[in-house]
Simulated assay, not measured.
Amino acid sequence: MAGDTTDVEAAVRAVLGDVLGLGAERTAALETSTPLFGALPELDSMAVAGLLTELEDRLGIIIDDDEVDGELLESFGNLVAFARSKLAR
């Protein structure tokens, strides 16, 4: 069930909201093309570690350091696709 498309998207949305302190309206407005790193002031280099750790905990995945790059956090869609790919392994 965790691999379900909408469940993964909802989990990523919830983690972004919780870790970054975004309100419900802002998290609900996240779309595939919504830019993240560099566009959300709350998502700075310090917040990235907390965000990734929380994704690991909630989704039961392991994110290796070498998997984290600018493209991963470029958009909401990229982050969701990455989480889906980790669950598919």
Rank of each mutant, 00 (worst) to 15 (best):
M1A: 14
M1E: 14
A2N: 13
A2I: 14
A2V: 12
A2K: 15
A2P: 06
T5A: 15
T5I: 10
T6G: 02
D7T: 14
V8C: 11
V8S: 12
V8F: 09
E9P: 01
E9H: 00
V12P: 09
R13F: 10
A14G: 10
V15H: 07
V15M: 03
V15Y: 03
L16R: 01
L16D: 08
L16I: 07
L16P: 06
G17D: 08
G17T: 06
V19C: 09
V19D: 04
V19Q: 13
L20T: 07
L20G: 02
G21C: 05
G21F: 06
L22W: 05
A24T: 09
R26A: 13
A28R: 15
L30H: 06
E31P: 00
T32W: 07
T32G: 00
T32R: 03
S33N: 05
S33E: 13
T34W: 00
P35H: 02
P35K: 05
P35R: 07
L36Y: 07
F37A: 12
F37H: 12
G38T: 12
G38K: 02
A39H: 13
A39Y: 00
A39M: 01
L40H: 03
L40C: 01
L40I: 12
P41S: 10
D44H: 10
M46Y: 11
M46D: 11
A47H: 09
V48I: 15
V48Q: 05
A49I: 15
L52A: 06
L52R: 08
L52H: 08
T53R: 03
T53A: 14
E54C: 06
E54L: 01
D57P: 01
D57G: 05
R58N: 04
R58Q: 15
R58V: 13
L59C: 11
L59K: 10
I61A: 11
I61P: 08
I62T: 14
I63L: 07
D64R: 15
D65K: 00
D66W: 08
E67R: 11
E67L: 07
E67Q: 14
D69P: 03
D69C: 10
G70Y: 07
E71H: 12
L72P: 05
L72Y: 08
E74P: 00
E74Q: 14
S75M: 01
F76L: 04
G77C: 11
N78D: 10
N78K: 11
V80M: 07
V80K: 09
F82V: 05
F82Y: 13
F82H: 11
A83C: 15
A83S: 15
R84L: 14
R84Y: 05
S85H: 09
L87A: 12
L87E: 11
R89S: 12
